[in-house]
Design a protein around this nucleic acid. Structure first.
Length: 430
RNA sequence: UCCUCAGUAGCUCAAUGGCAGAGCAUCCGGCUGUUAACCGGAGGGUUGUAGGUUCGAGUCCUACCUGAGGAGCCA
């Protein structure tokens, strides 16, 4: 019977067949240990000279790493095995050989691994990261779907830049039109929210900044909820509940993977609502007290974010950024127009901003004024202004970057491991 | 775009300005409980590129190329 390794415990004592690849091999004169993976997990298969034909034993002596093979044998619980189970091999069928596999069991450099990303993802560590990513994505969908949000995806080709063209990837759109890859679905999200109430979009996002840090990809996945009749406060609550739910799901269903990654899960167990909420003013004061050269009016730098998040044991929401450093559509605080009804959520342990959002301008005249102030082409935003012409309501939303969340949950050094094929400044292959 | 660091065997790295080496991988041999197994043997090099200094350069100098980390910018 064909069995996946992750289900092996249900077949103890039975004869099962595992179809996979050879991950590693250790041999003695009369016994072979074959570590096999099948995508669902890893298991050590034991082949003793007495248990198989001489031809099979000889064949196993020459198997190279990543040879695809089919093994049949008896599943047996064994405390010496990392997964708790071993396979006593009765027969072996080689599907296809793998000569001179480039990734050895020893260390490799980042550049070498990135050039072979399509093979790197076969390792146990990358398996674990991608499985956590899968859980995070599913948890996000489940969270919104169970709360009445409608998935309404926004276009990836967009006609013009909503926040300036320098950070967008231009693409030729048929003969003589330039389109841009989206950097946010938010403007369309607002229209969708006016139609459907509570919506979210979830897809790839593109940023053409020549940024070179461990937190940056040029192509990443972002989930963006948007709610009609909602305020900054609603968004902060939604954000902390979303983050807490996603972390909880990873802890609950991907404990094995987090263990492979040697993640200190105690730090994740603390991620529960409510999150501390700190105004930009307070944040500026904290940073000054810590001796950082921070001036009111500027954006938080990487070091600022790290120092700030270290003051708390869970993610922290920083709200009320100066209007001048936020997007043109961010609603000013009615009591204090120099700050906006905006919020960023900073992950702990120096992982930085995972959520950015806030309440949008719902007043037609103010929005038009902002568009002009930012020298944006009004005609391109007529549809967006329509949302304020026809039954405008207070509304708010945010965007959450999937890779940064996965990177934080997994405790990784760099977001590039959180997506199968990362796109970066100098990385377009494979 | 700027700053810092790195580039030597297929991979990861050593080598005081003086014979270019080790581990892993590959191939051969040994070993019945290995956990990145271990033990013995073999093959494997235009030291990123181009110049320069020197009796002599992997090592020092200059430029360039490639990559990494960070800054700015961002999720």
């Amino acid at each position: 019977m064909n069995v996946y390794i992750e289900n092996i415990a249900a077949h103890e004592g039975q004869e099962v067949t595992i179809r996979g690849w050879l991950h590693n091999r250790r041999s003695s004169g009369k016994i072979h240990f074959l570590t096999v993976r099948d995508g669902t997990g890893f298991i050590q298969a034991v082949m003793s000279k007495a248990g198989v034909s001489p031809e099979t034993f000889q064949q196993a002596d020459h198997l190279s790493q990543e040879t695809s093979l089919v093994l049949t044998g008896t599943a047996r619980a064994d405390s010496r095995a990392p997964g708790g189970f071993e396979l006593d091999v009765k027969s072996l069928e080689v599907v296809a050989p793998a000569h001179e596999y480039p990734l050895t069991p020893k260390e490799h450099g980042v550049d070498y691994l990135m050039d072979r990303r399509h093979l790197w993802i076969r390792t146990e560590r990358q398996h674990a990261v991608l499985r956590v990513r899968h859980e995070v994505v599913n948890a996000i969908r489940d969270f919104f779907n169970s709360r009445g949000f409608i998935l309404a995806d926004t276009p990836i080709f967009t006609p013009s830049a909503c926040e300036g063209t320098t950070t967008l990837f231009p693409v030729q759109y048929f003969d003589d039109t330039t389109a841009y890859l989206t950097q946010s679905g938010q403007l369309y999200n607002e229209a969708n929210a006016m139609a459907l109430g509570r919506v979210y979009c979830f897809g790839p996002t593109f940023r053409a900044e020549k940024s070179k840090t461990r937190r940056h990809l040029t192509e990443f996945w972002m989930v963006e909820p948007e709610m009609a009749y909602a305020t900054l406060d609603d968004v902060m609550t939604l954000g902390e509940e979303l983050v807490s739910y996603v972390v909880g799901r990873a802890l609950e269903r991907r404990a094995r993977e987090l263990n492979v990654l040697q993640r200190d899960t105690a730090k994740l167990e603390r991620v529960r609502p409510p999150f501390p909420r700190v105004s930009y003013d307070e944040a500026a004061r904290i940073l000054k007290d810590k001796g950082l050269p921070f001036e009111w009016g500027g954006d938080l730098g990487g070091t600022d974010e790290t120092v700030l998040s270290e003051q708390f044991d869970r993610p922290v929401a920083v709200y009320g950024y100066p209007s001048a450093i936020k997007a043109f559509y961010m609603k000013p605080d009615p009591n204090r127009p120099d700050v906006s009804l905006s919020v960023d959520v900073l992950a702990p342990e120096g992982y930085g901003e995972i959520i950015g959002g806030g309440q949008r301008i719902d007043d037609y005249d103010l929005l038009l004024q902002r568009i002009k102030e930012h020298n944006l082409p009004q005609e391109a935003f007529e549809w967006y202004l329509d949302l304020r012409r026809y039954g405008s309501v207070p509304h708010a939303g945010f965007g959450m970057g999937v890779e940064r969340v996965v990177s934080w949950i997994c405790g990784l050094e760099h977001v590039r491991e959180t997506i199968p094929y990362p796109r970066m400044l100098y990385r377009l292959y494979p």
